[in-house]
Every structure is written in structure tokens, then in C-alpha cells.
Amino acid sequence: MQIHPSIPDLRLALQGRGRIVFVPTMGNLHAGHIALMNEARARGDTVVASIFVNRLQFGPNDDFERYPRTFQDDCDKLAAAAVDVLFAPSESELYPEPQQYYVDPPGIQHQLDGEFRPGHFRGVATVVLKLFNIVQPQAAVFGKKDYQQLMVLRNMTRQMALPIDVIGGETVRADDGLALSSRNAYLSAAERAEAPRLQRILRRIATEISAGAADFARLERDAAAELDRHGWKTDYVAVRQQADLQVPDGAGGQPLVVLAASRLGSARLIDNVEITTGSGR
């Protein structure tokens, strides 16, 4: 695996490499990331990963400074997954001067996760557009666990007319259903045992909606209350349309997704379940 910290060197290395499929990461890799690499391998000729902890997407109360940096271990995992090229820029390489031009997503950036992490999706969209311009891939893979991020980036790519196919990779889970996440490392043993409750609740909501339940607000309230009774601090549980994450309009038939974010101890966990049958009111 080639490792390039320099933008000019990376661009030179990617000349004539066929169909490039790109997987951006912030490092601290786990099996969920490796599944995205495997998805990328099946989609093209050259797999490019990046590792960059992007300050722009962290708020003042977020965990930028303590976000785990595990570069050598990450490189070993990427090499074992047959990743061809790793782009590992420094902050000064990617932001040689203060970033003054930003990608400002529409109103959805202020809802759901955006309500609790102001500026987060602005920072994500800006760095991903910059990475797209550097790598110039034909496709890019992002995990469905970060569902709102995937939707924002997919819609940005379409509206900016970028010739990039944005692919959603399925969420990888532990045996008990917990979605794999770098932030799971913040859980104590007792919190780790409790954490799968989030996925169980979302699956129950999806089952009820598929069976015809239509009072989405009640399902959301009951789920948040159940989590909080078990020691969580819930930001939201929400039933939304898959395409744009807007509140279902009542027309019926549109694919839905139920999403949640809740804190358990010092870890903020997010998860979602797509609803593909019986959707809508």
C-alpha cells in the first residue's frame, strides 16, 4: 500500500489507475471501515482511503482533541484489506490557509444531528468536497450508520454535478446488534452491555410501522422515554423519509428510516433502521 501525505504526490500516484473508488475516514478503524474498503474493492480498479481528523466538523463541545489517533494500526488494517493508496495529509497540507470558502448544506443541516452539533455538516461537506477535488474518484463509499451524513453528501454530489457515484455501505454490527463505532471505546463495561438497547428499540419501531402503525410522534416519544429510563440522555428519535430526511408528508408509500442519537455515559451513539415495507401513513 502506498502512503501519500502530499496532495501533488497523491495526484501523481493516481494517474492511469483506472476506476478509483474512495473511502474517506478519520482513522481509528474497525471492522465497519474495513467493510467499506471491501465494498470499494468490488466497485473499481483502485481503492483509495484517507485518514484525516477534520477539525471543521467538530464543535466546541465535541471530542476533537481526544478523538483516538491510531495511525500505524490503521495502516496495518488497510494494507491487510488490500487498499491500494492511503492519503494521510497533515492539517497544514489540507488547510494551508484558514478555510474561508465552505459548502453550506440546506436546512437539513440544522435538524436531527445538526441541531445538536451546529456546523457539523458544513464542516463535513466542505472537507469531503475538498477531498473529492484532490482524489478525483469515480465513486466513493460512506457508511449508512451516519445516515444524515450520507444523505447530505449524496445530495451535494448530485447538485454540484460531480461525476462521482456515492455508495452507501451497510452498517456492520457486533453480535448483539450494536453498530460498530470508534466512539464505542468510550463505553464502560456496564454501558457496553446496555448499548444494544438502542438498536432493539429502533427495530421495534420499524416493525410497528411496517405493520401499519401511523402515529410516528407517539412512537418517537415512547422510544426516547424508554431510553432515558435506562440511563440514556436522548437527543432525538425520529421517523423520516429516506430521500431527504424530512418529516413524512402523509401521502404514504415513501421509504422511511427511523433514526436516533442518545448519550450513554460519555459516548454519544447514533443508529438507524431503514423501513422498506408498509411505509408511510
Rank of each mutant, 00 (worst) to 15 (best):
A251H: 15
P248A: 12
Q246G: 00
L202E: 08
A211R: 11
A211Y: 15
Q241I: 02
V237G: 00
E226D: 11
F216Q: 14
A261H: 01
A261D: 07
D222S: 14
W232D: 08
S279Y: 15
I205G: 04
A243H: 11
G231L: 06
T277C: 07
G278N: 12
R204Q: 13
N272E: 04
E220V: 03
G265F: 14
W232Q: 08
A214K: 15
V257E: 01
A213K: 14
G212R: 14
V247A: 05
L256S: 09
A213I: 05
D228F: 11
L264D: 03
G250C: 12
A251N: 10
V258S: 05
Y236E: 00
D249Q: 09
D249A: 08
A206S: 12
E220R: 08
I209P: 05
T277K: 03
G252Q: 15
G278R: 12
R203I: 02
S279Q: 11
G231A: 03
G280D: 11
G253M: 10
S262C: 05
A260F: 03
G250H: 02
I270P: 00
S266W: 14
V237Q: 03
A213G: 05
V237N: 03
A223Q: 04
T234E: 01
Q242T: 08
D249G: 12
R263T: 06
D249N: 12
G278M: 10
D228T: 07
A225C: 07
G250L: 10
R240P: 03
D222T: 06
R268N: 02
G265E: 13
L264M: 09
R281W: 13
A211Q: 15
A223K: 09
P255C: 09
Q241P: 00
W232G: 04
I209G: 05
A224Y: 00
W232L: 09
V258W: 04
V257P: 00
N272V: 05
T277H: 07
L259H: 00
H230T: 11
A238K: 01
E274P: 06
R240T: 04
P255S: 09
A243Y: 10
E226V: 02
